[in-house]
Write a protein that binds this DNA or RNA. Sequence first.
DNA 1: CTGAAAGCGCTAACAA
DNA 2: TTGTTAGCGCTTTCAG
Lengths: 341, 341
Amino acid sequence: MVSIKDVASTAGVSTATVSRVLTNGLHVRPDGLHVRPEVRERVMAAVEKLEYRPNLVARSLRAQQSSKIGLIVSDIRNPFFTSISRAVEDTTHEQGFSLFLCNTDEDPEKEAIYLKLMRDESVAGVIFSPTRQMAANFASAEINFPIVVVDRLITGADVDVVLLDNVDAAYRLTVHLLENGYRRIAALCGEMSTTGRERQAGYEKALRAYDLSPLTEHVKYVQPKIEAGYAAALKMIDSAHMPDAFFTTNSLLAAGVLQAMRARNLTIPDDIALVTFDETTWAELVQPPITLIAQPTYEIGKTATELLLQRIADPTRSTRQVILKGKLLVRGSSAAHSGKR
Amino acid sequence: MVSIKDVASTAGVSTATVSRVLTNGLHVRPDGLHVRPEVRERVMAAVEKLEYRPNLVARSLRAQQSSKIGLIVSDIRNPFFTSISRAVEDTTHEQGFSLFLCNTDEDPEKEAIYLKLMRDESVAGVIFSPTRQMAANFASAEINFPIVVVDRLITGADVDVVLLDNVDAAYRLTVHLLENGYRRIAALCGEMSTTGRERQAGYEKALRAYDLSPLTEHVKYVQPKIEAGYAAALKMIDSAHMPDAFFTTNSLLAAGVLQAMRARNLTIPDDIALVTFDETTWAELVQPPITLIAQPTYEIGKTATELLLQRIADPTRSTRQVILKGKLLVRGSSAAHSGKR
DNA sequence: CTGAAAGCGCTAACAA
DNA sequence: TTGTTAGCGCTTTCAG
């Protein structure tokens, strides 16, 4: 492995000079870096000749900070996080950072482990989607590196956040069902996340606006997984309180509900309507296509990364909460049908 | 940040001893590490008290190797790679490694950049899904770290590989269509990958076995993206040579084809059948559900990671090619219908 | 069994 | 403008 020493000796200069030439492009020095053009050329020639590439580990050790950023999400297989991760990866690499990926499965223990790992790796910063537990005790987590929270609400801590206006989105989605005549609306919410809670709150707010109150049998917190959505939906369908609509807080739960409805040979929306969050490949391909709140996922990921990079550049900067509105896409799965008007 | 020096001084020993205590658990030394139990205790107590955690960057620099592994895929949003990445992440973290994620978009330039970056980061190894170009010149890429190739065929280089028997899978999938009476089968194949080529070969082999030869108009290489699948399918549907079945080599293309068929109000499989590769959330949710070759994605990712870790442990080990068989899941989208028998 | 010291590759004071 | 040198935190000879 060719090191800075090799470059220095072939160029006939000291390692310091090589370093100066190389780092000049990086940090934009106020007054430029004082290396004679002639010397600079010699150094560059040596770099080319030897195919020298700086050792980033050494650089990190020296700088006490690396050009890596961490992304900690519950499960990359959730299409929402898949899309976020792609946006984050694009943006980080554009800016010369690399990306660590961590899946927590909404497990606070894993969260703690990964957070510590990120510190041990001296990452420059982290983009994090914490569980409710974590979010509630965020201040006491003693996170001593730049961090941006995505998708989840943080209370009692001063952090940069990028997330949807979940209450509003859920409210609009539920009102849409109510307007179309549905009254026995069941809610399947992701447990462990503030997002699930907030969307549940929006759902309840909408019901109250229509002088309805949700049956306890109709509100269920489940793991954000297809199987959990399937099981919960099946149970409700087979119960004495079969709903006339399902409101789910993420695409995995919606997929589970859809499976359950297929298993029971129910028709959407005639037997039961279905609405959810997050645009996916399949939401428009199934029949009828699914009504949902689309989140600007790529934008969320990109914004979060930008906020993070800005915070890294200036840790004293005041924090920002970026709240985005969801877009309601009305499709067939929530159509009002004759018997319901 | 508490360093090994702090631990050493509070424990009243040298940094060397602290290091010995700490690394003992890591590398299983042939004869154990000779630290008196009493001293070890003192060190551990200091570690606890100070909440010391070793600086991984420093450790990497010293060891000239890190505990990071890289995953370089074309696009994490392809459900196949999403699943692979989750398996890889699980397995790497289990073994105390962290994971770098890189998306190349099947762009050889990005591949080169990321490969170099991985070297600069001193990763312990890389799991890589290269383009055809890269695969063809793999030997000349001068990769000087452990690497395992997934999903793609490598010729002329001695590397560990984990991939599907693509020709066989495509052959069986096509034969299935032929058996069900389809004769004008169009193939949409992912360009840039050996996988697309191999699957195309399996498709042709099946046609030849039935004394058919594919029309040039019916074989198309496109970017592995929904939009590309949509555009290509639409063109074929609207052409003079409308196929009676679509064979696509990945789920994104299949989604595009499905969109195209919806756009033209065609019925599956009566107007045109559809078969593809890769199980997805939606393949069984659309109607009719899609016939496909399922790959054991999680297993592929896990196996690749295990091969990589073994190679890291023993670089002289002889290479392995793990070839897995796909599983044909026959569903409604390829059903024989009366007019076709 | 333990400590002293060198050095991984790099950058930033400080000198010259 | 350039070189010398120290040191980031760690592990590993080499002595003792």
